[in-house]
């Protein structure tokens, strides 16, 4: 009853605040479009597995350190599927087969370039043996996949996280600065009812937001979509709920809107670096575990796995569960944080 009252109030307030509505729904679309238009690829060092006889292997290895030798063909393909490798090259004279992991267009391009260069250096010695008839296979994706197809899924997750975090945090903060929180604490409303009411009230808008942004990316920006749109919407929604519960929690530690915005470089921006948009393997070892505590790590990976690799719920439910645990944890902490304002 009290939760319902809170939910209805939040919906009414939200609908009156047209600009905030626009920020939640239109700003992410705008930025996604911009990134789509301007993004260009950068240098990338590929990891390539080689399956072949010893002679070619030695030559390949000496030409570039990107190559790793595999004796076992299925092991190499397993590593490729696990994203430990970007490509596998099989040299069985006279033909060559290149299998690309395919999710990351930058990695694809870099791998092909590296292999072509290496093969050329061999060809000068054994010209007859390998002649231009190499075949390229994509494990995921295809040759026409663009950089945006790879980073798009992360960006969808990130923008939803960012805007929901900010809007929910500032709203909850305003409840405190305007004195209405104190007013509510003078009623028999329980602290958990307040937290749940907020999550539900905003949750309704985040469902809409997730659906709109995901559909826009797929149907208007034509981002690659291998899996189920419903699953992507579900994951983005879970990510939004996590952002919502984190935003309302952290607003307890901000005195005003400006201090809420100060959480962006502290909490939101670091998640971009750890979310998988940039390669975590290349970071300092002590830094890597940090990615484990970032909600965006799980959300971003799950969205990408579904959109590019076409994974089903069975493959990504682990990540979705982690987001659920994060949300519940943040909500629980928020119930405790409200104790600062009323013991009961």
């Amino acid at each position: 009853m009290r939760i319902k009252a809170l939910v209805i109030r939040i919906i009414r307030q939200f609908i009156r605040d047209k600009r905030t509505l626009a920020m939640m729904f239109i700003a992410p679309l705008f930025i996604l479009t911009l990134v789509n238009l301007v993004f260009s690829s950068n240098d990338y060092e590929p990891k390539i597995g080689v399956i072949s006889d010893q002679k070619v292997v030695d030559q390949l290895k000496s030409s570039d350190q990107a190559f790793t030798v595999y004796q076992n063909k299925s092991k190499a393909h397993q590593d490729l599927a696990d994203e430990k490798l970007d490509a596998v090259i099989e040299v069985t004279f006279p033909s060559t087969t290149i299998t690309l992991e395919g999710s990351n267009p930058t990695a694809n391009k870099a791998s092909i370039l590296t292999i072509e260069k290496a093969l050329k250096s061999i060809q000068t010695q054994d010209t007859n043996k390998i002649k231009g008839n190499s075949e390229i296979i994509y494990l995921h994706g295809s040759a026409d996949m663009e950089t945006f197809d790879y980073i798009g899924p992360f960006l969808i997750g990130f923008f939803i996280f960012f805007f929901v975090f900010l809007i929910s945090g500032v709203s909850f903060l305003r409840e405190r600065t305007s004195g209405t929180l104190e007013r509510l604490l003078a009623t028999p409303m329980r602290r958990w009812e307040m937290v749940v009411g907020y999550v539900l009230g905003f949750g309704i808008f985040t469902i809409l937001q997730s659906a709109i942004i995901v559909s826009f990316a797929i149907y208007v920006l034509d981002i690659k979509m291998a899996g189920s749109i419903w699953l992507v919407t579900l994951i983005t929604l879970m990510l939004a709920i996590t952002a919502l519960s984190l935003g309302t929690l952290l607003s307890a530690f901000a005195k005003n809107e400006l201090q809420m915005i100060q959480f962006i470089p502290l909490i939101v921006v670091p998640q971009v670096f750890f979310s998988g948009l940039f390669s975590i393997e290349t970071m300092a070892d002590w830094l890597q575990p940090l990615s484990m505590i970032m909600p965006l790590t799980y959300g971003g990976k799950a969205i990408r796995d579904v959109m590019i690799q076409g994974d089903g719920l069975g493959m990504v439910y682990g990540n979705v569960l982690v987001l659920l645990v994060f949300s519940l944890l943040f909500m629980l902490l928020n119930v405790l944080a409200l104790k600062k304002h009323r013991k009961l």
């Binding site: 109030r9 009414r12 307030q13 009156r16 605040d17 305007s178 004195g179 209405t180 104190e182 007013r183 509510l184 003078a186 009623t187």
Partner: peptide
């Protein structure tokens, strides 16, 4: 019934 010193009302509503 509690009436706070600041008008604890929702301005948008």
């Amino acid at each position: 019934g509690f009436m706070a010193q600041s008008d604890a009302l929702y301005g948008e509503l």
